[in-house]
Structures are given as structure tokens and as C-alpha cells.
Amino acid sequence: MKLPKLLQAVLVVVGVYIGFKLVFSVGLHQPIPSSLLTMYMFFVVVATLLVTTATEESAKEMSAPIKALVEDPSKKTIRNIVFVLVPLLAAWMTYSKLAPSFEAPVELRTIHPAPPSSLKAYGKSFDMMKLENPFSKFQKEDPEKFKVLVKEGGDVYYKNCHFCHGDKLDGQGQYAQGFNPLPLNFQDVGTIAQLQESYLFWRIATGGPGLPKEATPWLSAMPVWKDFLTEDEIWKVILFLYDYTGQAPRSWAAH
């Protein structure tokens, strides 16, 4: 038996929805955020409508049951039920959207906010546009020295940073779970691999309090490292971060 087109469409939409829920919540244990799922489903519904109305026949098939519902005298009972249910559903959705709840408001946090154009630290001003790691050049010029520098950076890291960012640089340090936001996972391709070294220097030197407003400086637990580390130590630890994770800073040299 062939299912009516409208029912097919509804089934497809419901199937996709359940599929998303199953795969992400049950299968991967990482549920899709509801805000995103809403948008996903919106476009799934739109696309389903587009596909089912692309040809004249299927468009007729699609609209036939709706037409029948509205016009066919024999469907009076079901019509009345639907006409009561639909406004109720809309009312319920509006109510549940507007009803106050105990949920804390969603706070939007920009993880990588735009850096300032210049940075003041160590009694001088760094031009973020031109700032470069003074040690990067040794990677090619003097690999031996570079290795030593990376090792020194590693020492700095394990003395200061690994408590939160983890000994594998994966953001899983001993204290990590105590923080919200969590310490960043440097192994993730979405973090340091997306950034230039000057950016890391800025983030390490000024820490959480140095974040701009959109990145909620009041939440971050990152210390202001320029008060504890020297300029060279910060540059060395940056070398270490990239070296350990096997990432390279964002650069346009290859371009």
C-alpha cells in the first residue's frame, strides 16, 4: 500500500528529528543544542515541502488531503477537532516560550574575541599587527636551540599551566572540572590551530581579566600571567603548546 504523500512528508520530518536525537543523545552522548536543532528542523521541513511540491502531481497529492479537510463536508468532525487543536497548540507553544522558568538565562560567550590593536605589558606597548614570536625563527635557523627553547617552554607549562589545561594539553587538568568555562583544550583543531602566536601572547599575558566584554572576563579563571611570567617565558610556552600538539600557528606564509 502506498502511503499518502502528506503522511510521507510528515514521517520524513519526524524520522529525521528522531534520528538526530538518537544519534547525538543516545549514540554519541553529546546532545544537539535545542537552539541548533530548531534551525535544523526548520530547514528540513522547508526542504521536504520543496521536494514534495517540485512536480505538479506530487504537489496535488500533497494538498489534496488538506483541501479535503477544509472543504469536504463528510470530514466535518475531524475538521472541527483540527481547528480547535491547532490554535491550542500554538497557544501552548507561545505560553511555554514565554513562561518564566528557573533556568538561568543563556549567556553567550565568544571564545575567541577579537584582540586589541595594541597590548600594554612589561612596561611597553606591543603592536598586535606586527607582533611575532622572537623564537620562531630558530625552528629553521637553529633547530638545536629551538629544541632547547621548546623544552624550557615545557618546563614553564608543567610548573604553571598543566593544573588546569592538563598534562596532555587537552583541557583535562586536575582542577579543570571546577571551572566554567572549562580550560581550553589545545589539542582541539578549533583552538590554537586557528590563531596566530601574537593572539596567544595576548591571551596568556592578560588572562581572563584582559578579555573584552563579549568574552565575559568575569567568568574566566585564567590568571594574568604577565604578573608571574617573563615575556620570554610566555613566548617559550607558546612554542611548547604548538610543538606538543603538533599544530602550527595560523599563518599566511604558504598562501
Partner: peptide
């Protein structure tokens, strides 16, 4: 999006602001 809008419950469920599979 790279930055997801998360409710606090979702934050807890995900264990942080990063989504392991959607983040990338």
C-alpha cells in the same frame, strides 16, 4: 555555528561549551 548557544542543562550534558562532534 562555531559558538553554540547552550542552556545550562546542555552545558552540563556536554561537559563544556564545546560540542565534540558539532564543534568541528
Amino acid at each position: 555555528p562555531h559558538t553554540l548557544v547552550l542552556t545550562n542543562q546542555e552545558l552540563k550534558a556536554l561537559g563544556g561549551p564545546y560540542h565534540k562532534y558539532l564543534g568541528p
